[in-house]
């Protein structure tokens, strides 16, 4: 009932156009997905077949097992994946621990300086890592912290976006419930942990996806601070192939698949959450 379903019978010619439109949409979708299909397909092929002019999705010679075995067990891709995972988790945990309490205080408690703090948060929202990277890099270099997990995570320990987002969310939490809890003798800490936090789970989940995907896919910062193989993230490892590929093309795309797979698979499992989380940057104040 919600959409306007103008009498279909009187618009019969439109359904033909609608069919053509649908076909085009799926054609477009095929274009969007094709690079993935090509990548997975190539990762299962021997080198000479990857650039065969007669591209076929199903490999004529199946070399998938060898390619992936090579990538996962003879090359350090498991370590890269582990590094990415550790860094993303570390960043996310600290972000949540620092942002949630601050957001609650900004949303529900009165204290002097709160508007200055919030103004700073808003201003910081526009500052990307690319601008502050030089001093942070220099500081890490001077303290000898380059090429450590800490260096990889440090600039992201505070997410002003998370503070902003959670503050908006907490503001929507009814004051009457908080007042009722205070009357019932809840302490402020209990109110946060037992009432407000559970209600914020959807926002926290969405932000977690946002943060995880952003840092998994980040190339810029690891490229700056990581120098040794054993600290390399999965995404950074792709830099090894810059301009010239591994001579074994099948293996190259097996590694590309391994790097991309975690986020894509997670997306396919939690589509709604991913779409909400990643486009959440669209939240307006």
């Amino acid at each position: 009932m919600s959409s306007i379903s103008l009498s279909l019978r009187s618009y019969a010619p439109r359904s033909v156009w609608s069919l053509i439109g649908t076909l085009f949409l799926f054609l477009g979708a095929w274009v969007m997905v094709f690079p993935f299909i090509w990548m997975v397909s190539s990762s299962l092929k021997p080198t000479d077949e990857v650039y065969d002019a007669n591209f076929s999705i199903i490999p004529r010679t199946f070399k998938g097992f060898e390619n992936y075995y090579e990538v996962l067990f003879n090359q350090p891709y498991l370590i890269y994946l582990m590094n990415s995972f550790l860094v993303c988790c570390g960043i996310l945990i600290v972000q949540l621990i620092t942002a949630v309490p601050a957001a609650y205080a900004l949303a529900k408690l009165k204290f002097r300086g709160s508007s200055i703090l919030f103004g700073t948060v808003i201003a910081a929202l526009t500052i990307p890592i690319n601008v502050t990277s030089i001093p942070i890099y220099v500081a890490l270099a001077k303290t000898g912290l380059l090429d450590t997990y800490l260096a990889m995570m440090l600039p992201f320990f505070i997410s002003v976006f998370a503070i902003f987002l959670f503050r908006q969310f907490f503001r929507g939490f009814p004051d009457s419930i908080i007042d009722a809890a205070r009357v019932d003798g809840f302490s402020e800490m209990e109110i946060i942990l037992r009432l407000v936090l559970p209600s914020a789970v959807p926002a926290i989940a969405a932000f977690s996806v946002f943060s995880f995907v952003a840092h998994w896919n980040d190339l810029y910062w690891p490229l700056i601070v990581v120098t040794s193989q054993d600290k390399m993230t999965a995404t950074l490892s792709m830099m090894q192939y810059q301009s010239d590929f591994d001579t074994d093309y099948g293996r190259t795309f097996a590694s590309a698949t391994v790097v991309t797979a975690p986020m894509v698979i997670a997306f396919l499992f939690a589509r709604r959450l991913f779409i909400r989380g990643i486009t959440m940057t669209g939240v307006k104040g």
């Binding site: 009932m1 379903s5 103008l6 009187s10």
Partner: peptide, 12 residues
Amino acid sequence: STLLRIISGLEA
């Protein structure tokens, strides 16, 4: 309301 929408032509 459905009847009204049918009269209006918004609904067949």
